[in-house]
């Protein structure tokens, strides 16, 4: 496959976090801009670990919502320390403002975008058509299904103009068909812009690997407290990235079952 890995977009160094016990230790990871000729290829990275290992905590650290005990998170081509608001988040339960209609929820995300009011509405309309939400724009969040709310949540974050979007368990609670739809949606978001970077935090090995170009395995090592990154998978080098229907591939399935044993 023809691609290069260029400048660093996200650099996590020596991050650790403890509450009464160590949760995370020595987390180091780097995400680089992937360039493919003729494409606006963004990055899709997953952080995979079992339930309770500290994924959500790492998610919040990456989003700048909590400060780690040690370590730094540098973000963007300028490599500045992360601040809340620079990274979009789609939390585990797809939270939206219940007192606003879907349209207004999306509009709120564009407060800082410099566009005319009409252009903003047109943009929302655009995304609504693309992602199957036109008939729901006037509804309130509680009138939507979980999957629909998740799509709104993702689009909301795309509309803020953030290049980084973190997603906590984007596949949980969805049926097989919806999972395919979300994967398709994420794939399309990733190719909207060269620098768009999706970080998926999940315990769902199969689906996370299927759309990622890189995967980090978060686990506890024997006799050590606190989770760290025990393995990095370069799915592009393995020839398993950017391939629709990869879940049927034998080699892919082998990798999935290996990883399942490791977490």
């Amino acid at each position: 496959m023809n691609y290069t890995k260029n400048e660093v977009l996200l650099d996590v160094k020596d991050v650790s976090l403890s509450y009464d016990k160590p949760i995370l230790r020595d987390i180091n990871l780097t995400i680089r801009n992937i360039v493919r000729p003729g494409l606006d290829q963004g990055q899709v990275v997953s952080l995979i670990g079992r339930s309770g290992v500290g994924k959500t905590q790492l998610f919040k650290i990456l989003a700048g919502l909590i400060q780690p005990d040690t370590g730094t998170i540098m973000i963007g081509v300028e490599q500045q320390a992360v601040e809340a608001g620079q990274v979009g988040i789609v939390p585990q339960n797809y939270l939206l403002f219940n007192h606003r209609s879907i349209h207004d929820n999306l509009r709120l995300a564009m407060k800082h975008v410099t566009l005319e009011s009409k252009e903003k509405d047109a943009l929302i309309q655009d995304y609504a058509v693309k992602f199957d939400l036109t008939e729901h724009l006037k509804k309130y969040p509680q009138q939507l299904s979980g999957g629909q709310r998740q799509r709104v949540s993702i689009i909301q974050q795309v509309l803020t103009g953030n290049r980084f979007i973190l997603l906590d368990e984007p596949f949980s609670g969805l049926d097989a068909l919806m999972i395919d739809k979300v994967m398709d949606l994420l794939g399309r978001v990733a190719t909207l812009h060269e620098w768009n970077t999706l970080v998926i935090v999940s315990h769902d090995v199969e689906n996370s690997l299927a759309i990622s170009d890189t995967a980090f395995i978060l686990a506890r090592e024997k006799d050590k407290e606190g989770a760290t990154i025990t393995e990095t998978l370069d799915l592009i080098e393995m020839g398993l990235a950017w391939t629709p229907g990869i879940r049927e591939n034998r080699q892919f399935q082998q990798v999935v079952s290996q990883i399942k044993h490791k977490i």
């Binding site: 939390p91 403002f97 995300a109 803020t160």
Partner: peptide, 14 residues
């Protein structure tokens, strides 16, 4: 109020 609601505001840069 769920603290996540405040988090959402932060990510929307309020």
């Amino acid at each position: 109020i769920n603290t996540q609601e405040y988090d959402l505001c932060k990510t929307l840069r309020m």
